[in-house]
């Protein structure tokens, strides 16, 4: 399953579809202090990125996939500027 919502951590694996965005968003709002494990994320629909970037949750593990280098940059720096 691409999106697994646990008590404190949401694990995103592989490719996450737009339909997962709603569940993720709701889950993040339910309780503070929840974090995201993006280790095995390879790609996602924009809506997911929008939730992640817009909600600014704690990221427990950054994505390891090289194609998501830009996401890592956006999440680690404040500048919102990415050079590839």
């Amino acid at each position: 399953m691409p999106l697994v919502l646990k008590k404190k951590v949401a694990v995103l694996r592989g490719h996450c579809e737009i339909e997962d965005a709603e569940s993720l968003f709701n889950w993040l709002q339910e309780s503070s202090g929840r974090s995201l494990n993006l280790k095995e994320l390879t790609s996602a629909h924009t809506a997911i990125y929008q939730v992640i970037l817009g909600f600014q949750p704690t990221i427990s593990i950054m994505p390891e996939d090289t194609s998501l280098f830009w996401l890592k940059e956006l999440l680690t720096h404040d500048s919102k500027e990415v050079w590839l």
Binding site: E22, T46, A47, Q50, V51, F55, Q56, E81
Partner: peptide, 27 residues
Amino acid sequence: ITMPGLLGFKAAFPLLTSESDIYESAL
């Protein structure tokens, strides 16, 4: 991300609130 010859970009996205419509693109 798949733009030909992409060298860099700047993204603007809003902070989300509980009122936000996540199916609306605000990027």
